[in-house]
Design a protein around this nucleic acid. Structure first.
Length: 333
DNA sequence: ACCTGTCAAGTCTGG
DNA sequence: CCAGACTTGACAGGT
């Protein structure tokens, strides 16, 4: 099984490369007029996009083919007070440049709209803002000229005291979404509420592909190994919806998230790095059913954690782990 | 230079 | 019913 690794949003290696610079509403309101406020927001966004380009070039140089964009590329983009502002006109060029680089190097990219996107909500106003946020993320992918192979990863949402009813609500609300939003969603099990099995059931009902977070699974499961679910999770990536824009005969590899607990007392927070052994145990099991898998590392030390992990895999070179070029390995079952 | 409170947004728990 | 925790990087204001 070929395993590609990636990291989230920021680099510790490249200095001053934040793709998430922002402006608060308080500062926006203090600017002399609305027009100059919008120009300042667009200026910040273009810095974020420029830094994203720098990070992608860094990734390409290091052979890192998996990357998650910051969701904060455009500050205040979905704020209700700025609903009539269209930042994509001024930012068309940098967005297109990012997309061109992604396509040229076959990078696997994604977004992760944050936890305010809650499709299981019973509150109409929360649903409206959730759909607005999803629309915004699709708009960014489309501004990059990327097809539905680039996904927005979300959780199912809150339980509201009745998980089955909340799962039903997710499915109902999902059915109402535009197809270009639907076809770009992936569903991830969370660390407190919807377990791997519960998330998988919703993925199967909607046809959505599922991202398995093995750290969340450890903190939110009955204790069964995450790999017990792998065959079924991997199968969600073959549904017609998941395969939107995937050419015949090709596959979009299933994706997992990997991170390690910060400490014994705080098992849910992310540690600086990623422990190699538990991840490798999972990968060996997954290799029994899959030929390719992409792994998004969620560690505080970002790309440094990735580099460390790649070094750590060398300890297993006599145990079926082969280091390939860049941030890639091959794992034997 | 460094420290601390705050940020647009949701949900859940505990008081 | 409301305040605070959760979690996060960066801003903003203070020392």
């Amino acid at each position: 099984m070929i395993v590609r690794f990636g990291y989230v949003a920021m680099s510790l290696e490249i200095q001053d490369s934040s793709p998430s610079k922002t402006m608060t509403m308080a500062r926006f309101a203090r600017l002399p007029d609305r027009e100059s406020g919008l120009r300042e927001l667009e200026r910040i966004a273009s810095i974020n996009l420029h830094n994203t380009l720098r990070l992608l070039r860094h990734n390409i140089a290091e052979g890192i083919e998996v990357y998650r964009f910051s969701s904060k590329l455009i500050p205040l983009a979905t704020h209700t007070d700025l609903a009539d502002w269209n930042p994509f006109i001024a930012l068309a060029e940098p967005f297109a440049e990012i997309g061109a680089l992604v396509r040229k190097h076959n990078l696997r990219v994604s977004f992760h709209p944050d936890h305010y996107t809650v499709m299981s909500t019973p509150r109409p106003e929360v649903l409206v803002s959730s759909v607005r946020d999803l629309r915004h993320h699709v708009n960014m992918l489309q501004a990059m000229g990327l097809d539905a192979r680039a996904k927005n990863n979300i959780h199912i949402g809150g339980a509201y005291g009745n998980k089955p009813a909340s799962a039903d609500r997710f499915v109902e609300h999902f059915a109402e979404l535009d197809f270009d939003i639907q076809s770009r969603i992936t569903l991830e099990n969370d660390d407190k509420t919807f377990t791997t099995g519960e998330t998988l059931a919703v993925a199967q009902r909607t046809g959505l592909p599922m991202v398995l977070d093995i750290h969340h699974h450890w903190t939110n499961s009955e204790g069964e190994p995450a790999s017990d679910w792998w065959q079924e999770v991997a199968a969600t990536w073959e549904s017609p919806l998941a395969r939107t824009d995937v050419p015949d005969g090709e596959h979009l590899p299933p994706k997992i998230h990997a991170s390690s607990p910060k400490s014994e007392t705080d098992r849910r927070s992310h540690a600086d790095g990623v422990e190699v052994k538990p991840l490798l145990d999972f990968l060996r099991e997954a290799a029994k059913t899959s030929s390719h898998i992409d792994v998004m590392l969620e560690a505080k030390h970002k790309d440094h954690a990735l580099f460390q992990l790649m070094r750590d895999f060398e300890m297993y070179k006599n145990e079926g782990v082969t280091k390939l070029s860049g941030a890639k390995i091959e794992v034997q079952p």
